[in-house]
Structure formats: C-alpha cells, structure tokens
Amino acid sequence: MPEVMRHYILVDNNEQGMKLHRILDEDGVENRIAPVPQSIQGEYPCGMSVMIGDGLLDKAVASIGRHGAEYYKIVSVEVPFMPNRDRYC
C-alpha cells in the first residue's frame, strides 16, 4: 500500500483541538480527530491531534490564520492506514 502524506496539527490540549476542529469544519476543510501518530511519539507526547489530508494544508493554514486559532505545531508524516493489517492492540 502506498504511503499517504497526512498533516497532523498538534495542539496543547483537547479543548484547543476541538475548537480547531470546529473552525476547520466551519470553513469546509475536511479534517478528523486522530491520535498523534506513532512515528513522532518519541518527540511529542501521545494524545489527540487534528488530521488533514494531503492537498488541504494551505486551506487549513489559511483558515487557522483567519480565525487566529491556536495550535502547537503542524507535522507532516507519511502514515498508511491499512484496514487489513490485522494488528490490533
């Protein structure tokens, strides 16, 4: 499966994350709440982030700027979602 670039907007806390999620929704920027990916957990604590797909970063950044929304950092990572991987917890 080809790896897909996704952008994770890291936030200071879940309240900030949910606020950012709502702002992006209102501006029509497709996004989902997602856990901070495993590949960057060494650098950042685990927890929630706001995930946007490739090609939507500019729209997201513009929306964030327009609303003065707070966030911690944006990290771009190639994360494959593999529903048939069968690696559960």
Binding site: A34, P37, Q41, C46, V79, F81, P83, R87, C89
Partner: peptide
C-alpha cells in the same frame, strides 16, 4: 508501549473508513 500501538490500530480500524 501501549500508547505506541494505539494510533496505528485507530488509524487502521476507524480513520481508514470513508464517510463517517
């Protein structure tokens, strides 16, 4: 180590779905 495996499982099981 539990925290490390959870994001992949959530990605595979939930975030891979369309039109949620």
């Amino acid at each position: 180590t539990l925290c490390e495996v959870l994001p992949n499982a959530i990605g595979d099981v939930f975030l891979s779905q369309e039109n949620r």
